[in-house]
Every structure is written in structure tokens, then in C-alpha cells.
Amino acid sequence: MLGQAIADGILTGAIIALGAIGVSFGLQILRFANFAHSELVTWGAYLALVFVTFAGPGTPTGPLSFGWQLIAAMVFAGVLTGVLAWVVDILVFRRLRNSDAHPLSMVFAAFGVALVMRHVVVLIWGHGSYFYTRELQIALEVLPGIRMLPDQIFILGLTFVVVAAMHLYLTYSRTGMAMRAMAESPSLARVCGVQVESVVRWTWFISGGLAAMAGVFLGLTPQLHPEMGFNLLLALFAAAILGGAGSLIGAVVGGLLVGLAENLSVLFISPGYKTAMPFLVLLLVLFFRPQGLFGEKEGSR
């Protein structure tokens, strides 16, 4: 029971982590709480659905319920969602950033953008649920008393690989370093010759791509619906803030902790309240350690 809850928590946590990375970058590099980020998760899932609708989910490979087509769909969705995020920035956020509007009007706008994005999904696909594949899978007993579907194990593995790659990218690449520089001080980054708009663009691409990946994983376990991202919104913010805004490792650790909190809570409280757990975590963090586990103390702002 406990072991299974932990395993489920880690899986949920991995998906939350992928989404939380973008939220965390948004808070620190783009300097606003992007409440539309959850809709990138949803859009990523549905864009992959478009690909799967045409190409099919592929013949199940080994124990997995899908074939290479779904991986291709994920890449397709990742790229398009990254571009979508950037286009929204050009249409809305960049204009506000460059105007003398109140900084929080970005957050208002993000909510507006989220409303539009979410309901355009309803407009196109309706309220119903979709599946990438209807293949049935048999859970494997990975440890005594702990069962996981092969797809879930695949998700964990791929998440680990992608997060590790992102970490290397941020640590060693020129753009990654510029992103971290801008996270600390946009004005000093400018003085170093960093082009702010280019870093912003990369941040959106990466955030959008990872959000799409989270969306595909959510859709795989097991279905897509228009509120799939929105329902994750608090968890994403709780994870990003718990980890410390701007920290990749923080977002991942935060995601895992929030996922665990959600799934372990079921042992103590009614499952109906499970989705309130991220909020509880969030309140505790804001109260006791607003800079998060891996964050720097908030400077002047």
C-alpha cells in the first residue's frame, strides 16, 4: 500500500516536474507567474493526438502500448508547443513586457491567455476524453507489492534522461549559461552582450517542449481531456516554488515531493481532496521558506 503510493507518487511527480521546469523558468527568467503554462501541457498532449490520429500510435513495441509513432508524435508536439509558447509571447507577453504596464498585468494576461487556449481545445475537440491507444497492458511487479505499467516505467526512464540532458545543457552550453545569468540579473546579462529576446525565445521553446512532454505522458496515463493541464496548475506552481524559482534540479525535486504528497495523502484523507495537497505544500513553503529548497534568497524586486 505504502510502497505502491510511493511508486505512484514518483510517477506523478515526474510528470509534474516536466511541467514545473517551465513554470520555474517563467518565474525567474521571464519574471512572471505564467498561469497559461498548464495550457501548454494540454496543447502538447492534443498536438501529439493530431499526429497519432494520422500516423496511428504504432504497433506496440515490446511490453509498451505504443510504437515509434508516439515518440515521433511527442517530438512533433514538443516542437510545435515550443513555437506556440513563443508565438503567444510575441502576441501578448512581449508587448506587455516592453510597455510600462504594471508587472502583474502579465499575470492577468496569462490567465486570459489560459482561458482562450483551454477553450479553443474544447472548441476543436469537445469536452470528451481521448486516448492515444487502447492497447491493454499488464502491470509488472517491479518490487514486491509494487506494480507499474510498462508505459509508466518508460515515462520515468525518459523523464530522467531528458532532465539529465537539460541539466547538462544549462550547465555547459552558451545559451544555458546565458539563461542562468538572466535568471539572476537581466541587466548584467545585457551588459555581457546577452540578447535578452533570444534568451526569452529559448526559454519559451524549452518550457513549451517540456510541457508538451508532460502532456503526452499525462495523456498516456491514461487519457486526454481539455482540463488535464489546468488540473495540474497548482501542482506545477507548488513544485516550482518548493524547488526554488529558476532551479532545474529544484523543479524536479519539487515535482517529486508534490507528487509524493498527493499520492501519500490518499492514505490519510478522502481522495476527493487529493488535488488540494499541492496547495497545502505551497502554503507551507511560502510560509517557512519562500525562496524554496534550492532557490537563492529573493533580491530586491
Binding site: 549559461m177 542562468r180 545569468a181 535568471a183 539572476e184 548584467l188 551588459v191 555581457c192 546577452v194 537563492e296
Partner: peptide, 29 residues
């Protein structure tokens, strides 16, 4: 910067969360 100008601000003129090596690398962006 590309045209040959450099500027050292008064405060916040190093990235405290980056290593010294990374500071210099960003300087050579």
C-alpha cells in the same frame, strides 16, 4: 558590446549564483 564597448555597473556586477569561470564565460558570450 560587439562594437567594442564594455560596462561595469556599480552594484550587482557579478553573477553571484554562477561560478567565477561561468561569470567570465558569460562575459565572453
Amino acid at each position: 558590446i560587439a562594437a567594442g564597448l564594455a560596462f561595469v555597473p556599480q552594484t550587482g556586477n557579478v553573477f553571484t549564483t554562477l561560478t567565477i569561470h561561468e561569470n567570465l564565460t558569460v562575459g565572453g558570450h
